[in-house]
Amino acid sequence: MRYEAPKTLEQAIALLSGANGQARVLAGGTDVLIQLRSGRADPQLLVDIKAIPEMRAVVADSGGYRIGAAVTCMELIENEVFARDWPGVVDGVKLIGSVQVKGRATLGGNLCNASPAADGVPALIAAGALVCIAGPLGRREAPVEDFVLGPGRTSLGNGELVAAIQLPRRAPHSGDAYLRFTPRTEMDIAVVGAAVYLTLDGKGVCRSARVGLGAVAARALLVPAAAAALIGTTVDEAALERLAAAASAACRPIDDKRGTKQFRVKVAGVMARRAAAIAIERARRQG
């Protein structure tokens, strides 16, 4: 196994394209190293993207943000300006493992690992984030909810890699939040995760909303029906109950060592409702 740390995106793409599928991108490495150790991954080439300057930056961009794929979770958490705008995204990032893991792990890696339970992803879906992809054929963008195809599978083609994640400009009177359920308070994989992003008008009526769910299907889901339960309401108890029911109804979970179907379906609704309550609180506070 060879290790390369290119200095430019172009070099990285050239290395990946030349390796004919035998290469892995190394960002934080917190998933890749475990796969190497267990033998689940056995690449010929590791392409470390941390020496590429644009991959390491969080850039304010037309009111939104461009988060380089190699920005670590701790860097993002400590970015106070970003955290003020997208607290729900940061809610998710804060839950990606221990402080130690977050010192290496990246949001880009969390996305590319393509786990249905990735804590970083539902809030990105709710926020309407885009994945910025670069490859031999140039650059393209894709909505986060379309990027992951299933467990361990993404829409990345040969030689392509994620360069950044693009967060839109946050709307006025809006708030986002992410909550997950785990048996322990920390150091767990989400049994269920739910993110809500909503926008209020001057009268406190919800004008738009997006709801993302994690760990309840083969990939994180955008759930328009759950969002519809909020739109046009003042996000009162009744609306929250409808949101919970819609979130539960959207689940297509499995039974596994981390939770049962029945549990996931029920708790998805609970988490969605609680996340919405936080999001609306944030929206009201942000004015």
Binding site: P183, R184, T185, E186, M187, D188, I189, K257, R258
Partner: peptide, 9 residues
């Protein structure tokens, strides 16, 4: 990760 002994928090 999945054999969950208590953590400090």
């Amino acid at each position: 990760l999945d054999y969950r002994i208590p953590v400090a928090s």
